[in-house]
Amino acid sequence: MRRSNQFQTSLSSKVAVALSGLGLAGFVSFHMLGNLQVFEGPAALNGYAAFLREMPIVLWSARLGLLTVAVAHIALGIRLALQNRRARPVAYAVREYRVASMASRTMALTGSLLLLFIVFHILHLTVGLGDPSVHDQLDERGHRDVYGKVIQAFHNPFYVALYCAGQLVLGMHLSHAVSGSLQTLGVEHAALIRLFRAAGPAVALFVVMGNLAIIFAVFLGLVRP
């Protein structure tokens, strides 16, 4: 047996998926916290966006790093999911699950939907496709008007519905993913097992609630242009 091949197992892929997934989970958490600045008004959010853009090297390294992590996560995740599917060629006629959550059974589906959502989200709010006029507007300080863009988007019930669906899918993926990664990385202790199993749903709830708060605050007119 060649030693170099010994660690090319599905478990190694799982560890990589878990590590990259936790990285992405960290990103979505901080992304949500950053977005909460909507509640501090246009100056705060646009200032924050401008602050990020003033450091192009940092911004682009972060984007590149994030992209690498995401590509690794998606590629290895899909490969694992396909491998796993091959492991049971004939399905059971009757199947009953005792403990597996809906979220845990739909990781590949929620992951794929999440990918679609992320692509749409970047095109919509980062690139500003479909609404280039808004994209180029500047606020009174000469910053790009991200705030105005967010307000405009979430006045539209169509975008509200789409983003809510995205949050639902994100919440489901995260709720299984974070607890699962802890187990995959061997982070486990008899006394803390409940805490670790609850970590996924807790992180999911945290991120989704934060994002939904923004969407609905705008939609219901609590945050105004």
Partner: peptide, 25 residues
């Protein structure tokens, strides 16, 4: 541990999905 995990892949078993159905049965 390395040899057994490698053998598990070779035999065509899937990877763990952290669902814990195994423990339940």
């Amino acid at each position: 541990v390395a040899a057994m995990m490698e053998a598990m892949d070779r035999e065509g078993f899937g990877a763990c999905g952290n669902q814990y159905e195994c423990e339940a049965v």
